[in-house]
Design a protein around this nucleic acid. Structure first.
Lengths: 137, 137
DNA sequence: GTCCATGCAAATATTTTGCAGCAGT
DNA sequence: ACTGCTGCAAAATATTTGCATGGAC
């Protein structure tokens, strides 16, 4: 499947390779953040043999291109997801490790307050909730 | 310096060692999260020779005892800080890597909304802002 | 003396880098 | 053919574990 992101990259002179398109395709069709390892495993399962090094390199490349974003959660491993989606946050089950995206309406006041009290040039924020999911209770 | 945390641990039958008291003391007197490596370096600088393994083990121990908390930021390394402080969040400079604690008044609505839309048993949340600090601008 | 805590070495996990060869354009 | 991309191996970094010794009580 050829996505807009892929076409954009191609227009910029980058190549459309199997690794790139399958990693991008996977991230685009997944509704929660993935780690390098999980991407590797999923691709292997669906028959795409890609070296883990390539995954790391591709993730770094996609980060540079601002096509994906890094999500820090409570593991050592970093998670990644497609950027430019509806602004959202994360909800992680501390028992099974599953992660869910959530959209909140009420964060406006928070951002305003933040801009009022800080002299930083704030570019982004991350918000995550942790608890136990219904299945693990 | 002998802190309340240390006395509490002692009461529970754990020992008051130099590594434990200096790590605890450092975390208690630092107003931003630290990594295992940074703790190691600071202790070395002030003349406390402690193996990095001990630091990791002590951090794990203090986590179990709920005396400290794990803070996930955008690095690979995990940060830690004393728990039970005034509820606060973090502001990180993406240029120099410095981290500042911040207290916000306006997050109540956010938490209410979260509890309304989710069936998870939510126990905690983390909120971090990223941008450029005045010194790095 | 007991048993928790520590150091050292080594294992494991995560991420990065060098280099030669492969492949998209 | 050009040059970006990939695989493999190895390095670098972060974290964990085994075991014998040391130290707090």
């Amino acid at each position: 499947m050829i996505t807009n992101h892929l076409l954009l990259l191609q227009k910029k002179g980058f190549r459309m390779t199997q690794a790139r398109s399958s990693i991008l395709n996977l991230l685009e069709n997944t509704d929660h953040p993935l780690t390098a390892t999980s991407i590797h495993k999923i691709l292997k399962r669906i028959g795409v043999s890609t070296n883990i090094t390539t995954i790391y390199r591709e993730l770094e490349f996609l980060l540079e291109q601002k096509i994906i974003e890094k999500i820090p959660l409570f593991d050592t491993e970093l998670h990644y997801e497609i950027s430019g989606r509806t602004h959202h946050h994360h909800l992680m089950c501390t028992s099974c490790g599953s992660i869910q995206n959530i959209v909140l309406q009420s964060e406006k006041g928070l951002l305003e307050e933040m801009h009022n009290i800080s002299t930083y040039d704030i570019r982004r924020h991350s918000l995550a909730f942790f608890g136990t999911c219904p299945d693990c209770t």
